[in-house]
Design a protein around this nucleic acid. Structure first.
Lengths: 341, 341
DNA sequence: AAAGGGATTGTTACCGGTCACAGTGACCGG
DNA sequence: CCGGTCACTGTGACCGGTAACAATCCCTTT
């Protein structure tokens, strides 16, 4: 049998009261060193471990925060989760993860409710499919931080600077001399697609280049196949552009494979900029110029904000983390032959 | 203030005892429908949610299992985590994740201890760096399932059939007519590298082909750069092979980029088989023949075994999940010109 | 020597549920 | 009309900690 030893078992063995044991555990000063030693001896002998459950009962704290994500097997969110976990652990909290699968009919709300029942002290929602509002669930003062979500009252949002990323990508292409720059957006249901498209427009506008609707194509998803299909549509409809800004690396790679199948070469004929900087981006042919997003930092920031809110009772304002353009060989000046290879 | 309402608040509002409320919550039969209704009304009005902490106190159960992983941002383990989470949730459990970062000096043991303190009811350890033994930590009857770990007494192991995967990959190359088949292993600290190498040897041995040590090269990691470097060493030392079996897709892609930089073409000059079937594998140039591993199923199986053990008190035996060879264009018969493209 | 005070330790209640058992009232049979 | 049974409900203890307060003990002070 050997059930877990309790504080009272330790007390009996050490010949003191359970309260004294509690004091020793919590490092109170007012215990004589002789007693302290005897108690610690008893703790060791019984290999006693305090029950966080019992602790939680009185303090009404679970020392855990929840992360609800669309799909943690996604590279993007795996990174966020890793960052959040690190930050949480650093500050003595546990991270409980719920992954909402694509095929599930249930939306995030159900999972948030689950988490609240679990009495997590704070919540992170990653890339919610539905807009999140504070009143939506019994969020009785559980701080909520959303990642890559629309702004809403009572919800703190952490995100990467998608608009800035779009601007940087297109600015770079403009600096290389491109003027006819096409773009394959992600699905427009995603706020990030909107923001990157705004960045694209900002950049062209600032350079005095017309924004042609015919050069904007929406991919039906973020994957390779979606990119390939979108590129096919784009080429059929509006050939003649010299550069492409794709909203994910997979879309970019898919687009490149479509270009190649039509005998076009990158970057000789068309320069390509991707988005995400996934590991293979450095090893595609050609290596992909892309916008790197600090997803791990996003996770850390989100967890940090939640934990701050738990500690201080006030929810800080959201943060927009800067992205970084990683220049590789998939971009050259228009009409310039590549250096072979 | 408005602290969380308790079962007694509900009882008072409904004009019954707290015990009756408890019965309603737990669906006991012996409550009159009139009372039941009044209680449910009160629960609704107060938006009462039972505290799992208080529940856990008496039942001494947390309804959570822990997953300790080397790095959840890794695609491989993100999949495992997703599968485990799904299975856990399906059976009414929560999954608590701890990610052990590469740079951390602490090994898995510390995290296992953390989890045990947290009173998880079961544990999954994914790809531990150190051998896990049951006696190692105060695993007072907490069932432990290890993923991709060495067998050990008291530890149930779930894994993919790496040896079988190695065999399948090499069998396929042999069937295509290859005889001089090189292999780039992952780091040999990883049991999976050993198993795949055994599969490689099995297959060659069964076909009566000599296993040449000069054709076996170890990559120093699982990444693109490691694969590229290993391929360089291999070509410098023992040119003349017609096929390569690489132990990860990233290694394979890195190797291909090295081949390409030396003017060799895939599969015309050298056929390549990878391992993992990561998403880009279908879109590399050429698309990569590779061994697909059911990582999500591994996660589900591991969680299932842990939950079975919790329910039945007996730990089942481990499982070896079958892998599947995905045939794409990176393999052809030796000496055969590819079809262009 | 009695009172006061600090250091140390013990007592008791409480957190919010569940469990074991003890009522309570209605209905039944004898 | 009374005891017994059944359906339903209430009481009190308990899970394993923490918090508040009380009680010692040992000095010091007057």
């Amino acid at each position: 049998m050997a059930r877990q030893p309790t504080i009272r078992d330790v007390a009996e063995r050490a010949g003191v009261s359970h309260q004294t044991v509690s004091r020793v555990i919590n490092g109170h000063e007012l215990v004589s060193s002789a007693t302290r030693e005897r108690v610690q001896q008893a703790i060791h002998e019984l290999s006693y471990v305090p029950s966080p459950i019992a602790r939680g009962l009185t303090s009404n704290r679970t020392h855990s925060i929840g992360l609800v994500s669309t799909d943690i097997s996604d590279h993007f969110f795996a990174q966020v989760a890793a960052g959040a976990e690190i930050e949480a652990r650093r500050r003595g909290y546990y991270l409980v993860i719920a992954s909402v699968e694509e095929h599930a009919e249930a939306d995030e709300t159900a999972y948030l409710r689950l988490m609240v029942e679990r009495r997590v002290e704070g919540l992170i929602v990653a890339r919610p499919r539905l807009p999140i509002t504070a009143g939506q669930i019994p969020l009785q003062r559980v701080p909520l931080v959303a990642i890559a979500a629309r702004e809403a009252p009572g919800v703190t949002v952490v995100d990467v600077d998608n608009r800035g990323g779009g601007r940087e990508a297109v600015d770079f292409l403009l600096r290389q001399g491109h003027r006819r720059i096409a773009t394959i957006t992600g699905p427009m249901e995603w706020p990030s697609s909107h923001a990157r498209l705004e960045g694209y427009r900002d950049s062209l506008y600032a350079a005095g280049v017309a924004v042609l609707p015919s050069l904007v194509e929406q991919a039906s998803g973020w994957d390779l196949a979606d990119g390939r299909a979108a590129m096919a549509r784009l080429l059929d409809r509006a050939p003649g552009f010299t550069a492409l800004f794709a909203y994910s690396d997979l879309i970019a790679i898919g687009a490149i494979s479509e270009l190649r199948s039509r005998g076009l070469r990158v970057p000789r004929d068309i320069s390509v900029v991707g988005y995400d900087d996934i590991p293979v981006a450095a090893y595609t042919d050609p290596p992909l110029t892309t916008v790197s997003q600090p997803m791990r930092a996003v996770g850390e920031a989100a967890a940090g904000l939640v934990l701050d809110a738990i500690g201080e009772g006030t929810t800080g304002s959201g943060r927009l983390l800067p992205v970084r353009l990683v220049v590789r060989a998939s971009v050259s000046a228009p009409g310039t032959p590549d250096s072979g290879g």
